[in-house]
């Protein structure tokens, strides 16, 4: 058995060269999933390209109408970034409850989306925002809208030879509120049984625009379009919120696994959507 090749490029160009030379090599971003898989022998690698020393992929930049996030930005940096907290509060909230403090300091946003877990913390906020995942290969750049990047559990729109470079997100217009929450068995260091994110723009009590994302209840983080249709253009009320929460519970597609049944996950989606809409509605009306 040959030892795997270990490569540590310091520029994206060099990383892409390596990837061309060793197309079977595995990319290492934060390593928090990779190391566990290697340790448990669930993954065999022929080579590792360690991306952790590429500074050009680690940044958060406010570009006026957009925010750019380098793929190797750590979850802790997202959680604490004043720009993220101001523009996309729910993305910072999601980062804050991802795994443990230790993991957040290593794990990256690029790694989190490429791992493409249905319960991925950053998934729900990202699919609700207008923007792109920008991937780079030797042939050039490709932009994938955030809501089209996730393809299934562990699957995303990333072709051989491509590396996720950055996430560009359009800022939300003034007055848009956001929220992210998760339900889990234990209060920290636990995978979401269900999670949800919501973007809401109110005009008084009227719902001008709502976007709702649901996680861990479908193969990919899903947009709750039927629920949004219930709310858009309507005047917020307890009855409307109740109807929306029920719609969300029925339109999600959870499975039963060792952690929870599908029915219970629907109950959690009901609870999350109701809680989030109520919170944003009450806060927005103040």
């Amino acid at each position: 058995m040959q030892d795997p090749i270990y490569l540590k490029p310091e520029t994206l160009d060099r990383a892409l060269d390596y990837l061309t030379e060793y197309p079977q090599a595995t990319l290492w971003a934060g390593g928090t999933d990779l190391i566990v898989h290697l340790e448990h022998k669930k993954l065999k690698v022929s080579g590792i390209i360690d991306l952790t020393s590429i500074p050009e992929l680690r940044f958060i930049e406010d570009c006026g109408d957009k925010v750019r996030i380098g793929a190797l930005t750590t979850i802790y940096e997202i959680q604490t970034s004043p720009v993220i907290k101001k523009e996309f509060a729910f993305l910072a909230q999601a980062a804050l409850v991802l795994a443990s403090w230790q993991i957040r300091t290593l794990a990256t946003i690029g790694g989190n989306i490429v791992t493409a877990a249905p319960s991925a913390e950053t998934g729900c906020p990202l699919i609700l925002l207008d923007g792109n995942i920008i991937v780079q290969s030797k042939n050039g750049e490709r932009k994938i809208p955030t809501n089209q990047f996730f393809k299934g559990p562990g699957k995303c729109d990333l072709a051989p030879g491509e590396i996720v470079k950055e996430i560009e997100l359009e800022k939300l217009p003034h007055g848009y509120q956001t929220i992210y929450q998760k339900e889990r068995l234990r209060r920290s260091m636990d995978i979401a049984l269900a999670n949800a994110a919501c973007v809401l723009n109110l005009d008084g009590d009227k719902c001008q625009e709502v976007r709702i994302g649901l996680g861990a209840v479908a193969p990919v983080p899903m947009r709750a379009v039927k629920t949004e249709a219930v709310l858009n253009g309507q005047v917020m009320s307890d009855e409307l919120v109740e109807k929306a929460a029920q719609t969300a519970a029925s339109e999600c597609k959870p499975i039963t696994d060792i952690r929870a049944t599908a029915d219970y996950r629907r109950d959690l989606i009901y609870a999350l959507v109701k809680r989030q809409l109520t919170a944003l509605w009450k806060a927005g009306a103040e």
């Binding site: 566990v36 234990r186 209060r187 920290s188 260091m189 060792i258």
Partner: peptide
Amino acid sequence: LFEDLKLENGSTESNFRKYRIAKATD
């Protein structure tokens, strides 16, 4: 509240990701 060594295919094999013990936050 949450510890439960479940059988999967007759086995109780697990790890600390699946088998939850209380953390400081609990």
